[in-house]
Design a protein around this nucleic acid. Structure first.
Length: 894
RNA sequence: AGGCGCGUAGCUCAGGGGGAGAGCGCUACCUUGACACGGUAGAGGUCUGGGGUUCGAAACCCCACGUGCCUACCA
């Protein structure tokens, strides 16, 4: 007998821990649970070790867990492979902050010590997010958990690097890159966030050498003028035609620069003349390269964001922004500042620390991605990788087609060290998976390893196969690659998904996953992105704590409509907690009334009780639609479908019918079987969404089973349940009749306790028979003391009765003395009004020749049938109203 | 500057060519033997505006307004 105890409702806290431990102990998260099944694999998007669970993770994990639990129940050898990402810059920042508290920096303690410190930090705090995933109920195989800096994964990284280098797809080059002066590292294009800012456009007069006159240039970054090596104008610009080739005395320096021409200069912007600083601006670098001879590149800003010696003694050492102020004031002093204008423009920021990016020229390692991108585009074009919802494909293609080489070296310490060594003697570059003892060329001892590490995304790109054991040919790799689904938010489509597809194709010769499901971003109530700085974050664990993991998961799933962001609302979580409570109490009712019975494996196919046949058929439909929704990644549809069935069909109707059925010795046995079976099935269908409460109820219900049952996790997913359209149709009449009486009671304010007499006039013998067979059910649910059913004069409307009209039947409730004439007239009048309106629409349509001739036959037929029904209904309502009015007159006269 | 998406009940959102759905909230009545985290009944919407396509548009197309996001080197 289920242990519902004395508690009134469901209390998640105690139960969640219990079952999670149970699952772990039984090893149910391992794919070996279904050894003969087909493999199904999802690799988790590895969260940062530094991270703690936020809404995005919670949604992401919920969806993956729904998928993997569902597939497991369908008999798949399901593997959800978890792990974390070393998150180079983020983690290093965290540990550096710790050091700063002790007034130290990493350079003081040295690379080796620092790395040791990071590992120590990781050991201590790095497991937090994993623990939080477990609180969510994640059924990932923790025995296979991976970390991007694990030895195996590092081996994969080195192998990939060396192979790409050998194929000429990795190279080193010195050019402008995005530099974060605070993190002191290069960033890839993707790691730069562009934000609109209001700045100043400063107009500066550049005096022409050896003569009168000047050129005015406009800039948003006046400090870079110290590194200008030209002024460029458009060759087609008549205003400046004569100036090309002239020289300029660059203010605040003792250098002379030339006026050159370049197509890229836009005549309409600013003055049409642009200062060229090849060392600090991507455009200018291009312009510089196009000149012959190429323009000189003078770096005036250093890696720390301060001015270099090349900027001149007055400015060297100043922060770039202080220098900007000083340059402007100096220009003003010497009369070369023309004006400053407000100017809105996009400014690049470091995605980690939000510092303004400084383009700097430094040697970095790059991946030549074009050839790999071509293959990756093809894989999606040909449907070998499906992106769901499809809309994201366009973004994917757009980005991939214009992809530029990927800067992969980072000037930090935490990460995969670049497997490149330089010979101090002969300068030989050694690229190797293992540390070389000597230079292979000149045999000099101990070459120096490149100090840089790789972009974290470089190792993430290998995740779908490196986690499965590559470069070793492990059984897991053979079994689970390509994986089946990748679940992620769009914001790492380029960072991660695209790169995984490229690397998978390159090194495994096959796509890394078949489906990419892109889910929503979770926003706050106002639709703002949640962020710590805005202070609008909702902590998932608070939700779990307040409402239980099941309610929270169900909410996320119900919110997860494709193609739309989620505005999170705590009220919804509360609503779904109520749903779970409803389920809990339904189970309690069933256990109280089934005395240790257990559900059979198969749907009871021999029941005669009509409500039971009805609920089994409704269950079949709900289950089918749920499966279909899951197959199409429509998690919200699946969740809502189940909600509707459980609450509004199973609880509202069937359990209520069952109360009557259980009192009938002839039906009780069937009703019990159906209650148990339906509950059992519903628990299975809900399990992927709410694993804990379903396990609790299922285990409780299984207690009487002969051999006991292992876990709902491995119970078979309900499939191909039988439908019974006849039962559904016949029950429709019963439900309609009850609803009609309830409507009358409600509208006429009949006291809930008061029993009414009911007369049902059915339009068909069949309906009358069905209704006649369910009088006890109807009496209970309609609050009727007596019911007469028929098709003939015996069920004519009595005087002083309220009327309810339904398709196929009318319901009369005699209201001797009870009837409030005015209220009833009002109610009927309202109903008539509604019917009239509907009928008018309907008739108008049918009068329209175009409609009758052009609309599909089925639609016309449907419309005709509807019209007939409405006409019937209208007639009955009018009759009733007239009779009531007649009675009123009688009353007045009498 | 280009691109994508969204605007449906008071709120949060589904839906998607044949006169509109859910949850929460609201109103009335009910401590009815699973559940007040509940029950029954109800109120509430020219589906942002304007054009077009169609027999028929909330849905498809165009424009406008509002709003969110992505991409990009406009000094």
């Amino acid at each position: 007998m289920p242990d519902h105890g004395e508690r009134k409702g469901y209390e998640p806290r105690t139960i969640e821990r219990k079952w999670y431990d149970f699952w772990l102990e039984k090893g149910l998260f391992k794919p070996e649970v279904n050894p003969s099944g087909r493999p199904y694999c999802i690799v988790i998007p590895p969260p940062n070790v530094t991270g703690s669970l936020h809404m995005g993770h919670a949604l992401n994990a919920t969806i993956q867990d729904v998928l993997v639990r569902w597939k497991r129940m369908r008999g798949a050898r399901a593997l959800w492979l978890p792990g974390t990402d070393h998150a180079g810059i983020a983690t290093q920042n965290v540990v550096e902050r710790e050091l700063a508290k002790e007034k130290k920096d990493r350079h003081q303690i040295g690379r080796e010590e620092f790395i040791k410190g990071v590992w120590k930090w990781k050991a201590e705090y790095g497991g937090r997010i994993i623990h939080q995933l477990k609180m969510m109920g994640a059924s990932a195989d923790w025995s296979r958990e991976r970390f991007t800096l694990d030895e195996g994964l590092s081996e994969a990284v080195r192998t990939v690097f060396v192979r790409l280098y050998e194929e000429g797809l990795i190279y080193r080059s010195s050019r402008l890159i995005n530099w974060c002066p605070r993190c002191r590292t290069a960033l890839s294009d993707l790691e730069v966030e562009h934000e609109e800012e209001e700045g100043l456009l400063t107009y500066i007069k550049y005096p022409l050498s050896g003569g009168k006159g000047h050129v005015v240039v406009a800039t948003t970054r006046p400090e870079t003028m110290l590194g200008d090596t030209a002024v460029a104008v458009n060759p087609a610009d008549d205003r400046y035609k004569d100036l090309v080739g002239r020289r300029i005395d660059l203010p605040l320096t003792c250098r002379q620069i030339a006026v050159v021409s370049d197509q890229a200069v836009q005549m309409e912007f600013g003055t049409g003349a642009v200062k060229v600083t090849p060392a600090h601006d991507f455009n200018d670098e291009e312009i510089g390269k196009r000149q012959s001879p190429p323009l000189e590149s003078i770096s005036v800003i250093g890696a720390d964001g301060r001015m270099t010696a090349q900027a001149g003694a007055r400015y060297a050492g100043l922060d770039r922004y202080e220098c900007r102020k000083l340059v402007v004031s100096d220009l003003k002093t010497i009369g070369l500042l023309e004006k400053e204008e407000k100017h809105v423009h996009q400014v690049g920021h470091c995605y980690r620390c939000k510092t303004v990016i400084e383009p700097l020229s430094t040697p970095q390692w790059y991946v030549k991605v074009k050839p790999m991108a071509r293959e990756a585009i093809r894989a999606v074009r040909e449907g070998r990788v499906r992106i769901i919802p499809e809309g994201w494909q366009n973004s994917y293609f757009a980005w991939m087609e214009e992809i530029r080489d990927w800067c992969i070296s980072r000037q930090i310490w935490w990460g995969h060290r670049i497997p490149v060594w330089y010979c101090g003697e002969c300068g030989e570059v050694i690229v190797s998976r293992t540390t070389p003892d000597e230079c292979p060329k000149c045999k000099a001892a101990a070459p120096d390893q490149d100090p840089d590490v790789l972009d974290t995304w470089f190792s993430s790109a290998l995740w779908p196969f490196s986690t499965l054991g590559w470069p070793e040919a492990t059984p897991d790799l053979k079994d689970f690659y390509p994986t089946d689904a990748l679940v992620t938010a769009f914001d790492i489509l380029f960072f991660w998904v695209a790169r995984m597809i490229m690397m998978g194709l390159k090194f495994m010769g096959d796509v890394p996953f078949r489906d990419v499901y892109i889910h929503a971003l979770v926003r706050d109530q106002e639709g703002q992105k949640m962020s710590k700085s805005k202070g609008n974050v909702v902590d998932p664990l608070t939700m779990v704590d307040k409402y239980g993991a099941d309610a929270f998961r169900f909410t996320l799933a119900a919110f997860a409509a494709q193609g739309r962001d989620i505005k999170f609302s705590e009220e919804r979580v509360m609503g779904y907690r109520h749903f779970i409570n409803k389920l809990w109490n339904a189970a309690k009712f069933i256990s109280m009334n089934t005395e240790g019975g257990t559900a059979g494996e198969n749907p009871p196919d021999d029941v005669s009780d009509l409500p039971s046949r009805w609920v089994l058929s409704r269950l079949s439909q709900a289950s089918e639609e749920t499966s279909l929704a899951l197959e199409e990644y429509r998690f919200n549809d699946a969740a809502n479908r189940l909600y509707r069935f459980v609450w509004h069909e199973f609880c509202d109707w069937y359990i209520e019918f069952a109360k009557t059925g259980l009192e009938d010795a002839g039906q009780a046995k069937d009703v019990r079987r159906c209650l148990l079976y339906t509950l059992d099935t519903v628990l299975k269908l809900l399990h992927p969404f709410m694993p804990f409460v379903t396990e609790e109820l299922w285990q409780a219900a299984a207690r009487g089973a002969p051999e006991g049952r292992r876990s709902i996790m491995t119970a078979a997913w309900p499939e191909d349940l039988p439908r019974d359209p006849e039962a559904e149709e016949r029950m429709g009449a019963v439900i309609d009749a009850i609803s009609a009486v309830r409507n009358i009671r409600g509208e006429l304010n009949v006291r809930p306790g008061a029993k009414v007499s009911v007369i049902v006039n059915a339009h068909s013998e069949a309906a009358a028979r069905t209704l006649g067979e369910h009088l006890p059910h109807m009496m209970r649910l309609a609050g009727a003391g007596s019911i007469i059913v028929g098709t003939g004069p015996e069920t004519k409307k009595p005087k002083k009765a309220a009327v309810g009209a339904m398709p196929g039947l009318e319901v009369y409730v005699p209201m001797e003395g009870l009837l409030d004439m005015a209220a009833e007239l009002e109610r009927l009048g309202k109903e008539l009004g509604k019917t009239d309106k509907e009928l008018a629409f309907c008739l108008r349509k049918l009068m329209d020749e175009d409609f009758v001739n052009r609309a599909p036959e089925a639609v016309v037929a449907k419309e005709k049938a509807k019209c007939r029904q409405l006409e019937d209904k209208k007639r009955h309502l009018e009759d009733s109203i007239n009779r009531l009015k007649g009675m009123e007159v009688e009353k007045e006269n009498g």
